[in-house]
């Protein structure tokens, strides 16, 4: 963990309520699946965001405006500064897979972009299944297509396979040896009940983000664990979904 003042380089709106905030180059190292916590002016608690991209020292975060904090972020301009805790969490273990399958649900799939890039740099083109309610939720589809072999599933059939992620997994029958999943709790639970041969990135409301408050603890086969500090990435087989 580091405490840094980041400078906004770009804050690009990519759909009605989704933005990508990019920061000026910093001395950081990020593993895919790690996150940062931003201290938005006027709010007590920091907001956690998974690393969307990290390219030549420049960090990008993808976020949706869901409340007052993210609405304030959406107004931030190039050159503005923000207090951040960086390099948080454990990240995905990319050594587990020779033939990885990346499973993402909705905007929660954002961290899989940097994961797919990480595999690409290792010379592995990952297979990816992106699930969403409807086509318009897949705002970053074109970005993902540049770094992975992407299949799509939508609940309403407006793009790709019509059905949920698990039905799509059965339909596409991917040739993979390990999966990496990121998305809504409901989706992750379905994926874990289909197969436990993978890693899952969990999401939770957090207060501190570095293991002090126990605000984000989940139950695992090895007792309670903190999403922020012991995760956010866990083996699918160790998570006990409520």
């Amino acid at each position: 963990m580091k405490n840094q003042i980041l400078t906004v380089k770009d804050n690009k709106q990519i759909s009605d309520d989704v933005f990508v905030m990019k920061f000026e180059k910093e001395e950081n190292e990020y593993k895919a699946g790690q996150f940062v916590e931003l201290k938005v002016d006027g709010f007590t608690l920091r907001r956690p965001f998974g690393v969307y991209d990290f390219e030549k020292g420049e960090l990008s975060l993808l976020y949706k405006v869901v409340g007052q904090g993210t609405a304030k972020m959406a107004t931030m301009k190039r050159g503005e500064k923000i207090d951040a805790l960086t390099e948080l969490g454990n990240g995905f273990n990319v050594d587990k897979a020779k033939k990885p399958l990346l499973i993402g649900g909705g905007l929660g799939a954002a961290p899989l972009y940097y994961l797919a890039k990480t595999f690409k740099e290792k010379g592995i083109k990952a297979e990816m299944l992106l699930g969403a309610r409807t086509q318009s939720d897949l705002v970053f589809l074109n970005d993902f297509k540049n770094v992975a072999d992407v299949k799509v599933a939508t609940d309403d059939g407006t793009s790709g396979f019509k059905g949920n992620v698990v039905e799509a997994l059965k339909h596409y029958d991917f040739d993979c040896d390990f999966y990496y999943a990121c998305g809504s709790l409901a989706m992750l639970k379905r994926v874990a009940s289909y197969s436990t041969n993978g890693e899952i990135s969990m999401e939770a409301r957090m207060a501190c983000g570095f293991g002090a408050c126990m605000g984000c603890s989940i139950m695992t086969t090895d007792g309670a664990k903190r999403v922020c500090k012991d995760g956010p990435v866990f083996y699918a087989k160790e998570i006990i979904f409520e």
């Binding site: 007590t44 409301r205 957090m206 207060a207 126990m214 603890s217 989940i218 139950m219 309670a224």
Partner: peptide, 27 residues
Amino acid sequence: NERYGNPLPRVAECPVGMLNSIGLQNK
């Protein structure tokens, strides 16, 4: 005895503060 504490969410933002309902998670 060991306690997991309360179900999530157990923290919430407030103006100039926060709410918690951790529920004494400890081993």
